[in-house]
């Protein structure tokens, strides 16, 4: 049964993905939820809390307000908090109960915007998806609401799209010589830098969470995009060696190995956004049983140590911890993904 997870943890959820994506941008992030989302996020899904605090709140929804659809309290509480905390923008996220009762977040955003004078937008979540969906929706909603056409371009300007600690906990990106980093969405860039994104000439998508915003910026502002290392250009053949995890990172690692040693690896993508991100030899899996089945004939597996729990004993397992899967458990082992030699060596 695809819904049953006997031992494997689920990935970080979409609401945490939303919070992680917008964490550093100075906005007030409000999750319309009774309790728990905030604690889960700041305990298991966020590494920055002690270094850099953010305005992330839950609404504390109770049963009566949920049943009667009492949006006034939610709106009034947001306005009061915004007056206290003076955020640069307000972003709202959904959870199962407001999703079920059809809460009109777009309407609420409009009212909040009118009453606070601050940009306010809704990020489509419902707590029933993984972080890649939530972060992707957050970057996209932010781009749609906040970006304006640039008056002039920055020659060689590049945006990096799709960096959150959930995927790139310890990865250090750099731009080629002669190029200029305009913004990094959104791990290490200020709001002011991110708002200059439309002056860039190229977007570099480094995880599936950045793809939707890249598509939007291509269509709206004419900025083309590339996937990390143009990994889809590296042809790989069918094999029983697998990289299991997020598709862009896994595809990038597979391409790096192919180029350096000629060894083929196939990607088993286990996060939600995969359209246009997989090669023919790769596949998408959903749920513990499907992943277990896909790994059952493996000779070599590269992946988060949690996947070892459902891997055949005969397979050689190469640990590549992923914060969005194992959280804090192997945080100290998480490598810089740009440094292949730190986490993969041919036997």
């Amino acid at each position: 049964m695809k819904k049953a997870y006997k031992i494997l943890p689920v990935y970080t959820g979409d609401v945490s993905g939303f919070a992680s994506a917008l964490y550093e941008l100075g906005g007030m992030l409000v999750i319309h939820d009774p309790s728990g989302c905030n604690s889960t996020y700041n305990t298991h899904d966020e590494v920055r809390w002690y270094k850099q605090e953010a305005l992330i709140y839950i609404s504390g929804l109770n049963d009566i307000d949920a049943i009667t659809g009492n949006d006034d309290k939610f709106i009034n509480d947001i306005v009061r908090a915004a007056n206290d905390m003076k955020p640069k923008f307000i972003a709202l996220a959904n959870s199962p109960l407001p999703y079920l009762n059809g809460t009109d977040f777009k309407g609420i955003s409009k009212i909040v915007e009118d009453r606070t004078g601050l940009p306010c937008f809704y990020v489509q979540t419902n707590a029933m998806h993984d972080y890649s969906k939530g972060a992707s929706e957050a970057f996209l909603a932010f781009a749609k609401k906040m970006l304006k056409p640039a008056s002039e371009k920055i020659a060689g300007g590049i945006n990096i799209l799709g960096t959150t600690p959930l995927d790139h906990t310890n990865t250090k990106f750099s731009v080629p010589e002669g190029k200029t980093l305009v913004s990094n969405w959104a791990y290490g860039s200020s709001l002011e830098e991110v708002l200059k994104a439309t002056s860039a000439e190229l977007n570099l998508v480094v995880s599936s969470t950045g793809l939707a915003a890249a598509e939007y910026m291509k269509n709206e502002f004419g900025i083309p995009y590339e996937l990390l290392g143009n990994y889809l250009d590296v042809k790989r053949g069918k094999t029983r060696r697998y990289i299991v995890g997020e598709p862009v990172i896994s595809g990038f690692v597979a391409a790096q190995i192919k180029e350096k040693s000629g060894t083929d690896f196939n990607v088993i993508a286990t996060t939600e956004i995969t359209d246009g991100l997989l090669s023919e030899c790769d596949r998408k899996c959903h749920g513990e049983d499907e992943i277990r089945e896909a790994l059952s004939d493996a000779e070599v597996i590269i992946g988060d140590p949690m996947f070892e729990l459902i891997s055949p004993e005969s397979a050689r397992f190469v640990r590549l911890p992923h914060f969005a899967m194992s959280g804090r458990l192997y945080r100290k082992e998480i490598p810089d993904l740009m440094r292949l030699e730190d986490y993969y060596n041919e036997p």
Binding site: K3, I7, T40, T43, A127, H129, L309
Partner: peptide, 28 residues
């Protein structure tokens, strides 16, 4: 749902008790 599950399953994982913990994920 996924997001609610994350907090409880990682609690069990950090206790080293995943073998005594299982999940059923609710979807739309």
């Amino acid at each position: 749902a996924d997001n609610c599950m994350r907090g409880v399953v990682m609690t069990a994982a950090e206790m080293g008790e995943l073998s005594r913990f299982s999940s059923v994920i609710l979807e739309e």
